[in-house]
Computed example of a mutant assay.
Amino acid sequence: MWPIIKITYREMISKRIFTITLIMSLAFLLLFGLATGYAIKEMKESSFGNAGPDALLQKNFFSTQLLGMGLYFGSVITALLAILSSVGSIASEIESHQIDTWLARALPRYKYVLGKFFGLASMLGLYGLLMFFGLLAINQWVGGGALAVQVGGDQILKAAAFFVGMPIILVCVAMLLSSMTTTVTGGIILIILYGISFIGGFIEQLGVAFSNSSLTNIGIISSLVFPTDSLFRQMTISLFDTADDPLSFASQGIFGTTSPPSTTMLIYSILYGLVALGLSIRVFQKRDV
């Protein structure tokens, strides 16, 4: 299985989409840093620079929303990289008949699938960590005392775990689709599922904010169809958690969480990924290539 993991590393690094994503990620972090720097400059020249309780509340709200926006788009970039790099992990090799070389050896098919999974999941998990800590570092260092969100070590570790969990679940589902369909078909399906999850998440937040049960139920159903948004919402809760009020700032704004996911939903998200990975092994073992 280890040779499959190493080859997966090489294939992913050699792909043009990986190189382009790294360059665009650096550009995104640079843009976020510039936005944070200009925000500090404007804050010092406005009423936010006052030391009153109202100004402090506005400052805290603005800082959490700015970091939340960065983490949201960072998660989108990470998800797209996960989809584009993993959805053809098996299907593309079947289409090009490169897989025949591996299947001709005494290598069980489940080891081939697991090797692909561990290779992709570890690479994307590392990328997710770099993206998360890059955005948080910019907030803490560039933001300084004005815009830096006050977070503890436990909050950072919990939030990072949920942030990394999103691309790993995407890899699990991508492996299933890659073992069943072509690369293009699997990519389209997974992008649509990802879109349903995040749109449904926003709908659920609006439903809770306006006490609309219909909108809330739509959001819950979309989370059951594809649970990645639940991990993002839990990430914001974990990062912006405070001792006085866990939802004081995490529940505010367009990137907030007015309806935090339950423990049952988080367990469901983990099981969702494990079942998808297990099905990908089962389907591939029975597939005639």
Results as ranks from 00 to 15, higher is better:
278 G>H: 00
247 L>K: 07
228 T>S: 05
201 G>V: 00
203 I>C: 04
187 G>Y: 06
249 F>M: 11
204 E>C: 03
209 A>D: 06
204 E>W: 05
187 G>S: 06
206 L>F: 11
261 P>W: 11
262 S>M: 10
257 T>I: 01
262 S>T: 14
207 G>L: 04
208 V>K: 08
215 L>M: 13
231 L>A: 06
265 M>C: 09
279 L>T: 02
211 S>K: 14
241 D>W: 15
184 V>M: 15
242 T>P: 07
207 G>V: 02
253 G>I: 01
198 F>I: 08
232 F>L: 07
280 S>L: 08
203 I>W: 02
275 V>F: 10
267 I>K: 13
180 M>R: 15
238 S>M: 11
185 T>D: 00
266 L>N: 14
241 D>K: 13
238 S>H: 12
259 S>N: 13
278 G>L: 00
206 L>E: 13
219 G>F: 08
265 M>N: 07
249 F>K: 10
280 S>F: 09
194 Y>K: 00
221 I>V: 15
253 G>C: 02
202 F>P: 00
215 L>D: 01
275 V>R: 07
205 Q>A: 09
217 N>S: 14
181 T>G: 03
230 S>Y: 07
182 T>C: 08
242 T>S: 13
238 S>Q: 13
247 L>R: 06
245 D>E: 06
261 P>A: 10
249 F>G: 03
253 G>R: 04
228 T>H: 01
234 Q>S: 06
245 D>F: 03
185 T>K: 11
258 T>F: 00
202 F>E: 09
229 D>H: 13
225 V>E: 08
252 Q>C: 00
241 D>T: 08
244 D>F: 13
